[in-house]
Design a protein around this nucleic acid. Sequence first.
DNA 1: TTAGGTTCTTGTCATTTGGCAAGTGTTCCT
DNA 2: AGGAACACTTGCCAAATGACAAGAACCTAA
Lengths: 197, 197
Amino acid sequence: MELKLILAGLMKKMSPQMPVTDEQLQRILEVIDEVPVTKGEFVLRQGKVSNYYLLLNGYMRGYTFDEQGNEVTTNFFAGPRAVLDAASFFGRLPSAENIVAISDCRGYLLTLEQLNKLFHEMPEFREFGRAILVRELVIAQEQKLAHINLSAEDRYKQLVERDTELMQHAQLRHIASFLGVTDTSLSRIRRELANKK
Amino acid sequence: MELKLILAGLMKKMSPQMPVTDEQLQRILEVIDEVPVTKGEFVLRQGKVSNYYLLLNGYMRGYTFDEQGNEVTTNFFAGPRAVLDAASFFGRLPSAENIVAISDCRGYLLTLEQLNKLFHEMPEFREFGRAILVRELVIAQEQKLAHINLSAEDRYKQLVERDTELMQHAQLRHIASFLGVTDTSLSRIRRELANKK
DNA sequence: TTAGGTTCTTGTCATTTGGCAAGTGTTCCT
DNA sequence: AGGAACACTTGCCAAATGACAAGAACCTAA
């Protein structure tokens, strides 16, 4: 399927009360760049200022390091998602995150200037951008809540349920660190889940 | 200190690259409502559509209930903060959250119409609104990260360090459920921290 | 003052999770 | 084929946390 159509569908879905016209979509495509990302490529490196990758298709993983130097997975992304470190991108600050593709991906790469230009000239795109940002906020709050009131086992079950395909691209130790448990623990959790069935 | 001045200072701090003029500030104050909230009052009730309370001064707590019916504290707020359920406010959906003042508070109450009106006519306010939203996103992601790579003890230490005053207004069991541990556990953690010193 | 309610602490024991080390299986490179 | 590297599993024991119940400290209202 053509990327342009996916984008159109996403914009319609995210801000249905302010639909874009075909001419506006054409204008957007003149400004932003279609950039494929192959598995293993990075869209963000620690220490750099984040870009805004509008991931339409594929899977990515974000990670950083704790004080002991252990890798910690902070995010999994399944298109369509906004892939960025918001604090870095909007604040023009070096990021503490790394974000890497764990499958071949398709999407658009936006700079802050491109985004601001489109925000300025097109209220519909502004609304879309806000809806995307709100969704990222909701996702982060949901994941935080899962840590507060679910056990590791339940968090794992929820993750697999909601993102079955994504989980098939992710390594177990990355899933474990994302859930906040060791890979040993997650391995045991999986064994018990398998036994129950 | 007058609330208007606090708002002016906040706007300057949040979006320094697009400062508001005095006339614009005056216009903003014509549109939004200054609303004090006394301790124990709610700014959001489960099942209602969220408003946007721009908390400038004071402390609030957000909570919901898990499947077993236990109260779970999802957020503490210390002014200046945007106090809202973003999914509910922007999506016009009933909220699952309750938000209650745990001290007397001062701030402005905004409806979505008021916010959209100001966004539409004032790019500076738009920028401010975006900066606020980004900050909420960063806060949520930081708290999620704390759950992934810190122990309960470290999460508690970090919370007390960063929000000393807020913690003096919060009950221990609410802090405990916010941290994702039982009040029993938190009580023990506090005892051991006291012993260490 | 007393009685009742709420909050926090503590003790005991069960469950979950972590740390470490060994073992199995797979992939990849030469 | 051989070997190294990596991913995942498992066993053993220690540490952290939960569940439950009792007690201490405090506040409030009759």
